[in-house]
Design a binder for these strands. Structure first.
Lengths: 110, 110
DNA sequence: ATAGTTAATCGCAAATATACGATTGATATT
DNA sequence: AATATCAATCGTATATTTGCGATTAACTAT
């Protein structure tokens, strides 16, 4: 069993970074983000036309991206316009950068 | 239903990036990677001592990181020494960077 | 050969993720 | 008020993930 006397760093950073990574862990969600970045914004319907998925499934993926904070939607009745959530996007970008920019590259091992 | 006449770009890039992101999508795996990056390398046992998880669970996470290509293990009987897989690590880093470095930041929306 | 150490694997349970069709809710339009 | 449109949500089924204890496999050391 693990030694709970040396608790791991379940830090806010790790949890938040994991949350962003999870949002990015499905090809369809990457494609949605890519699409949004190219179109600057779009409606759910546009995505449903482009993706080989049911409307409810696309909506589900959008919900996850929204909950992760990577996108935001504004009501534009009767449609909803989605776009990248810049602030959180940059946050995710920075978290990932600082995670990957450790300096273990100088050290050789294995 | 989705329009399959406009198939999505289930490109190799999206699939590979999603694979890396999935490996990063769990706090424990991030902590393992962080630990490896600081120690340059370590044995499975070291991680089991540090993490509040069963040995089998840690082994499972290591397996996933290995399958994603982010770490590699070399046999050092009777132990196994793990470290970051530099080449794939840099690949993941670059894929993520190019994904996040789209230029939609200039555009305002929503 | 026997015993000890280390880590992977197996078998299981619970939780979560993925996808769908059907329904609902909100807002325009007629 | 009735209808149409769009997207979220519900209910369901299946697959995957996460975690554990127990076992197995590989190798050392005695």
């Amino acid at each position: 069993m693990g030694n709970t006397l040396h608790p791991i760093d379940y830090s806010a950073t790790s949890i938040e970074l994991a949350k962003f990574a999870k949002a990015l862990s499905h090809p369809v969600r990457l494609i949605i983000l890519k699409y949004l970045s190219n179109q600057t914004c779009c409606f759910t319907g546009d995505l449903v036309e482009v993706l080989p998925l049911a409307q409810s499934t696309v909506s589900q993926h959008l919900k996850e991206l929204k909950e992760a904070g990577l996108i935001q939607g504004t009501v534009n009745p009767p449609k909803i316009k989605y776009c990248i959530h810049k602030e959180n996007w940059n946050k995710a970008k920075e978290l990932l950068n600082s995670f990957f920019d450790e300096d273990f590259n100088k050290i050789s091992c294995c």
